[in-house]
Design a protein around this nucleic acid. Sequence first.
DNA 1: GTGAAAGCGCTAACAA
DNA 2: TTGTTAGCGCTTTCAC
Lengths: 339, 339
Amino acid sequence: MARATIEDVAARAGVSVATVDRVLNARSTVRPLNVKRVEAAIRALNYHPDRLAARLARGREYRFCFVLPEGDNVFMKGLEDEIAAHTSHLAAERVEADIRHTDVFDAAKLASALDAIHGYDGVAVVALDHPRVREAVNGLMARGTEVVTLVSDVPGAARAHFVGIDNSAAGRTAATLMGRFLGGRGGKVGIIAGSLALRDHAERHFGFVQVMGQEYPSLQLLPLREERDSASRTGKATRDLFAHHPDLIGLYNVGAGTDGIIDTLRQAGRRDAVVIAHELTAFSRAALMDGTLSAVIAQDPGHEIRSAMRVLMARCDRQPILAAQERISIDIFLRDNLP
Amino acid sequence: MARATIEDVAARAGVSVATVDRVLNARSTVRPLNVKRVEAAIRALNYHPDRLAARLARGREYRFCFVLPEGDNVFMKGLEDEIAAHTSHLAAERVEADIRHTDVFDAAKLASALDAIHGYDGVAVVALDHPRVREAVNGLMARGTEVVTLVSDVPGAARAHFVGIDNSAAGRTAATLMGRFLGGRGGKVGIIAGSLALRDHAERHFGFVQVMGQEYPSLQLLPLREERDSASRTGKATRDLFAHHPDLIGLYNVGAGTDGIIDTLRQAGRRDAVVIAHELTAFSRAALMDGTLSAVIAQDPGHEIRSAMRVLMARCDRQPILAAQERISIDIFLRDNLP
DNA sequence: GTGAAAGCGCTAACAA
DNA sequence: TTGTTAGCGCTTTCAC
């Protein structure tokens, strides 16, 4: 017995395919009796609509807009590459994706960039946790544009989904690695972040401090330094930290700008300290290989982009999203398990 | 300007859609001149065939067979669950998947199980590196059935693809974690495997020993114990190891049967040793949470099943496979980054 | 409220 | 070797 089609259902229910389609897609009012009949037929035949045929008939085009931070953040460049790669792959499925850039550190600019978005079915945005941004996201959803937040969330907003990792868990993971790699040694641990105004940085920092305090009391945490994800600033911060604290044995970089830290460490020839950073880039890979970095905690930009697109498409089709498949994992990379 | 269709290409090339289809799918011989014309038209219009429409028209059904080890291996049960889950999701895409069980430790049985497979478009098999199995795989491919190996490979075989991790890298990863978690302490490290006849176990063992020898000379590796992935045997082995070696500070379980080890460790109240095992299960998760296990190295069964199906489908459609998307990563899980 | 029928872009007979 | 055409399963006018 082959798959049931909409015609089979129509025949069994004693109505036309158009009526079946109406109850399936809640398109227009159908007499209650017929609704019952159709539903019964669907159950009886175990009918599942053929999504391919539906998409073909609908001739639907998905237009998505990705809003990313401007600047030279390597991870964000990676996201862009993945968007390009996946879009060309999805051209066959009528998906079109544009990219817009804006200043992520500025809520007003980000909000007005979002407000200015028209003519898209969905938008994915690297967000900022701020009332103005929340408002802008809600506005988009209200106008019927699906919104997912990417990498960094706006918790209170009506966004359809957040595509990204649990950042406090990522911070806790960093702490456990730091604590265990340091294996009972006592000393100081430095922390550098971009800005605690960025929700992901704040959460990582929180998770890190929490576990360090609870589990590794022999390690003394130095006050957090906010260096705006700038390589020159993180490099200088690293030099300062080592200069002022001869007993510095660990360093955690919560945000970007890891290249600056790596350069400084290489110049100083410091390979003994345990250094943990986020995101896999050409720099961090090389640093992992030569021992400058001990571990990297990462999120896979490819997974994130594909997930964002799947979620957006599912929402546009009013289909449920499979939470398990869309969960983004916290990857730990050592020298030995680099992809 | 909308997407170009096959009709646009046909019109521009001055041929019929059937001819375009012929050159697209290398269906039958087309006059070279027309091939040129069609190819030029495709380039000029930037034509990409609509895969959805193709699949719909083809009315293709993909019939796949998964050959898995029999027995109560929890990881393999996980694979089965994922097959079920993904198949129901792919029913909408006309994919049907059956599961067969066989004895993986027995090359002859596995080979004849493979020989007995007929009427499938593709098979995914948890293989065994043995000439008979290689022959059986080659036989399937020769009869036009696409084969991918899953989790455990048969390197010399003509299989279309191997879906799984780099196991020697996984072993090296285990060693680095072991060495760093032990942080300079000296002592003995035990190794338990299922059987070195299983290629994945042999490779993990190789990678582990290699890195331990090179990087952590203060740790003494005990001779490998082969316990056939049986929980009762690994449990006993663990008891023996601790009884005979009071200075045992690390334990690496290369294969399955981790539950036995966990039970023994819990009973003995040994939380100080660094214990590393493979695969995420209800047991290993709980053991990670309560500190009995220090780290788990895993491969995501969901990714593997989805990848196997994608690869098989792509092969059936004679489409290229995207290596980057199909790479299975070596996941490291600590208490803090459990999914 | 309901149904008939014309596509969506492609494939695969079948004819020429 | 090439072209014509009837579908694949669904959506969507447009009449009734």
